[in-house]
């Protein structure tokens, strides 16, 4: 695992050199155009070279060989470790133009002389991009928004592959092809493991409440469903979660529970076990509780391990 990974990273490095080293206008001086998920056309006289990207988008593009000059969004945890959203992005080689939502530093953004802004969308909002100065930003660099909610992980990954390709990365580079094959193998094994028919409940939880994740909203869960995993669908309509009183902990029967691993949204496992209605849930009593790596960046490389760990979890579990 670690050797293939290192080899892969080496390949990425070369690819990155190729992408960055090509002189301006090497794309033949033809105009560049990309239609994003708002249906808006982002246009440039030449292919953009200096990209500023929201952190999960940056991580997805990074794995495909694109090296953003600036990123924005959550980056480090207080203890110095990386957030899941960072993926492989090397923060020492990029500038941060803002960490917190609503505090996008336009001044710093312009100082990077960007020619493209890439961000993700949940619904119609361009995440982390301030609304009022958007015209100013767009007068310098067009904005590309990639919608993440309501579409499966594979679709989301492919959206970034398409964008990276248009930005000059080679979608058929050996490293990318290898990562895709690995991802496909992981998806096949999960699909096989799902045949056991175990019911999987995916939650965020804190001491006050339990939140059931909606599979049709979250790209990763939607993909699990597509692979045949029986994911519990809460009564949440179009929302990302249904929130429940702890008195309702066993409202949805389940054999396996995945708990949000983000410190931001869930309390640690020990804290959960102190909640009496949680500790008496059959799946919890059977020890069939595993991690949900929410907000994993959408790339083949980041997702293969996610699929593998669910496959492993299903393999270890039984009906309760």
């Amino acid at each position: 695992m670690s050797t293939t990974r290192r080899a892969f990273l080496g390949g990425m490095g070369l690819l990155a050199l190729g992408a960055c080293g090509s002189p301006r206008g090497a794309a033949g001086g033809t105009a560049w155009e990309f239609t994003d998920d708002r249906g808006r056309k982002a246009g440039r006289p030449a292919r953009p070279q200096r990209v500023v990207a929201q952190i999960t988008a940056a991580a997805a593009l990074w794995d495909l060989g694109i090296r953003p000059v600036g990123v924005f969004g959550p980056q480090k945890r207080p203890d110095g470790s990386n957030e899941v959203m960072i993926g492989n992005v090397d923060l020492s080689t990029t500038q941060s133009v803002g960490i917190t939502y609503g505090e996008f530093n336009v001044d710093k953004f312009l100082s990077l002389r960007p020619d493209l802004l890439v961000t993700v969308m949940y619904g119609d909002e361009l995440w982390y991009v301030p609304k009022e100065p958007t015209p100013t930003i767009e007068s310098v660099a067009p904005i590309v928004g990639i919608r993440l909610n309501g579409r499966s992980a594979r679709t989301n990954i492919e959206a970034f592959v398409k964008l990276a390709g248009d930005l000059g990365a080679d979608p058929n580079a050996p490293a990318v092809v290898e990562a895709r094959a690995d991802f496909d193998r992981a998806a096949e094994s999960l699909s096989a493991a799902a045949k056991s028919g175990l019911k999987v409940l995916i939650v965020s939880a804190n001491k006050d409440k339990l939140y059931i994740a909606t599979p049709t909203y979250h790209g990763d869960l939607k993909f699990f469903q597509e692979l045949g995993v029986d994911v519990v669908v809460p009564n949440a309509g179009k929302d990302a979660f249904e929130s429940l009183s702890w008195e309702q902990a066993d409202r949805y029967p389940a054999d396996v529970i995945l708990v949000d691993s983000r410190a931001a949204t869930s309390i640690p496992r020990a804290g959960l076990n102190a909640i009496p209605t949680w500790s008496r849930h059959p799946a919890v009593k059977a020890g069939q509780v595993f991690e949900w790596a929410a907000e994993t960046p959408y790339s083949y490389n980041r997702f293969a391990p996610v699929l593998r760990s669910l496959t492993e979890a299903l393999g270890k579990s039984h009906r309760v």
Binding site: T100, G102, F104, E125, P130, P133, T136
Partner: peptide
């Protein structure tokens, strides 16, 4: 969480992005 964070920034008061 995203919107809550933006709302918290608003509730704190910010001059960022004023045009």
């Amino acid at each position: 969480a995203f919107q809550a964070q933006q709302a918290v920034v608003w509730l704190t008061g910010s001059l960022s992005g004023r045009t």
